[in-house]
Design a binder for these strands. Structure first.
Length: 208
DNA sequence: CGGCCGATCCACT
DNA sequence: GTGGATCGGCCGA
């Protein structure tokens, strides 16, 4: 019994607060590939392997909501300590889930753009209104939040808590398995739109 | 206070 | 490949 618990702890571990508090958001965005994002709402456990991310580098990044130190009721969450969920509404329809990183008052974040379903697939299919998993199930930031049951009202949720958390299950993306490109929909960010801050784990998701 | 627009998705052609 | 849906946040007046 003891050995079994020990083994589980070793192989599967919830990401600790320290993981999110580091100051290299681009590195964290890469490291998040392969981690498993879990939610548990109303007793329904769902999770998926993270397959695509984008880094948003705080006040120096014109694509970031917190560019130039901008603060508002919405973006205030980005200034929380790393390990907090920043979820906001996009196009009036979609909730987009971000992992806040870095220390308190430094508003870095990683947008989770794709997951590969792992746990609670039936629940996730229900939420998506689908009958079966297809190639693009879980691909797209709006869909990630939707199938995991994440809503923009969940912004500010602690990622070391019991509703939303991440685990390292021993899956790691090797450098040659990572496609690096520019971020989506950030043309307004001028030269920062060219930054190579988008990462895809090509073993699990085709680059689009 | 009004108007514009976005870190998107899906149905339809 | 494309255009419509849809509404909160943000900025300028």
């Amino acid at each position: 019994m003891f050995n079994l618990l020990f083994l589980q702890k070793k192989l599967v571990s919830k990401l600790p607060a320290d993981f999110y508090l580091r100051d290299d958001v681009v590195l964290i965005a890469k490291e998040l590939l392969g981690k498993v994002l879990y939610t548990k709402f109303d007793g329904l456990l769902c999770g998926g392997i993270i397959t695509e991310t984008e880094a948003y580098a705080g006040i120096r990044d014109k694509a970031s909501h917190a560019y130039n130190g901008r603060r508002s009721d919405r973006t205030e969450i980005m200034y929380c300590k790393g390990g907090t969920a920043y979820v906001y509404l996009c196009y009036g329809v979609h909730s987009l889930f971000n992992v806040v990183t870095n220390k308190k008052d430094i508003p870095d974040a990683v947008l989770i753009r794709g997951i590969s379903p792992l746990k609670g697939v039936e629940t996730m299919l229900d939420r998506a209104g689908k009958k079966a998993v297809d190639k693009n199930f879980g691909v797209g930031p709006g869909k990630v939040a939707k199938i995991l049951g994440i809503h923009y009202s969940h912004t500010g949720t602690d990622l070391c808590g019991k509703q939303i958390w991440l685990e390292d299950t021993g899956i790691h993306a090797l450098n040659h398995e990572i496609y690096t490109g520019t971020r989506i929909g950030v043309d307004y960010a001028a030269e920062d739109a060219l930054l190579p801050y988008r990462f895809i784990f090509t073993k699990y998701q085709k680059k689009i």
